[in-house]
Amino acid sequence: MNEEMEALNRNCTWELTELPSGRKPIGCKWVYRIKYKSTGDIDRYKDRLVAKGYNQREEIDFDETFSPVVKMVTARMIISIAYQKNWSLCQIDINNAFLYGDLTKDVYMSLPEVILIKLIQDINDYSLFVKVSEIDCLYLLVYVNDIILTGSNTKIIDECKLFLKIKCRIKDLGYLKYFLGIELLDNNDCLVLSQRTYCLEVISEFGLLGCKPAITPLENGVIFSNLDDHDSSDQPLENISEYQKLIGKLIYITLTRPDIAYAMHCLSQFMHAPLKSHLKATFRVLRYLKGCPGKGITVRRNNNFVVTAFVDSDFAKGSMLRKSVTGFCVFMGNNLISWKSKKQSTVSRSSAEAE
């Protein structure tokens, strides 16, 4: 807490003054968090003084809120490129990142300015910054206050770290091993991205650590019904918040588990009116993960950067709306970097039209 107060005073976050007549102050509170390592051990205790922004009213006290959040497909692509080219992968944490923004109104905080003015902001992902010269290249990915940094040589990476240290206080976390719940394990011949620790935490939270694992995420040929056309024996869930919470956690696990992407696409459609059969199917996904919690994405060095995409679809499967589902996966070389399962926006009249 002392370090947090020191940072607030050092950055001149506020100044003491009389409360103007007719103005209502917004309260503040301390938020405490425990940061864990990938092994589950405690890394450090973290506290932050925050304003109670939930008392503000949209379009009166603020227009919009935004934090730089890199797309996970961009992160997987940059990690794949860096590993294949044998570049150094570094991780940086910005101390008190939100204190480097400029206040434009009394109750509104704007997006912090871009601190690396020599980097080019990518037009496809505004949280990716690139610097390319004739001999060197540097990639910087921003996820709120966490940064992934890689480049063609260590000199340009060290120069970037030095520039960041001059502009703001940072914590150099060294080689990238754990990022947003994703573990990176270097096995010399390959790099594995997995969410084993997080996956086991979710399984334990819902009491299925001792369950029998399932072979597949969903039963073969299963078709889900909604609240309007369900069987009388299949009753709606009384507590839908737990179902929504579980779906959200499983969707996050799909960042490294494309094998459950289709299952989560199907089950997430019933978040506002789930049935007991939907919860049972969701628990089956957990039982499937129980059998292989450490499975993830493998990145191998092959010096092949050709982008290849594969796509397929079903035809009007299920009783709801008769819309087909398209699934695709994108490879860079032999490494999988993107995947998705998505319902089509229109109704197809044939399998050829669906594809």
Rank of each mutant, 00 (worst) to 15 (best):
K71L: 10
E64W: 01
E59Q: 12
A51C: 14
D61I: 08
T65P: 02
D47K: 01
E59G: 00
R76Q: 06
E59N: 15
D63N: 13
E59D: 15
S67A: 15
A75V: 15
E58T: 08
V69P: 01
G53C: 11
Y54A: 02
R48C: 14
R44V: 01
R48K: 14
L49Q: 10
R76A: 02
I79L: 15
A75R: 04
N55S: 15
D47E: 09
K71D: 09
E58G: 09
I78H: 00
N55D: 14
G53S: 10
D61F: 07
Y45Q: 08
K52S: 08
A51D: 04
A75D: 00
I60C: 03
R57W: 00
F62A: 01
I79R: 00
K52Y: 01
G53W: 12
E59P: 00
K71G: 05
T65M: 12
E58K: 13
D61R: 02
D61M: 03
K52T: 13
V69L: 13
R76D: 06
I60H: 03
E64N: 07
A51Q: 05
V69F: 03
T74A: 11
E58N: 09
D43A: 08
I79T: 11
F62T: 03
R44E: 09
D43E: 15
I42R: 06
M72P: 00
V70M: 04
S67M: 09
M77F: 07
A51W: 01
D63H: 10
V50G: 05
A51L: 08
F62C: 02
Y54M: 03
F66N: 08
R44D: 04
M72Y: 13
Q56Y: 07
I78F: 05
K71E: 14
K46G: 07
K71T: 06
A51M: 12
M77C: 14
F66R: 06
R76H: 12
L49D: 10
V70R: 01
P68I: 12
E58H: 12
E64F: 10
E64C: 02
Y45W: 11
K52N: 14
D61A: 05
R44A: 03
D63Q: 12
T74L: 04
V50F: 06
D61Y: 05
L49M: 15
R44M: 02
R48Q: 12
K71C: 06
T74E: 07
V69W: 03
R76M: 06
F66D: 11
F62V: 03
R48S: 09
A51S: 14
R57L: 13
E58V: 09
E59M: 05
V73T: 14
K46Y: 09
I78W: 02
M72S: 00
I79Q: 03
V69C: 10
G53R: 12
E64L: 04
F66E: 09
N55L: 12
I42P: 03
T65G: 01
D47G: 15
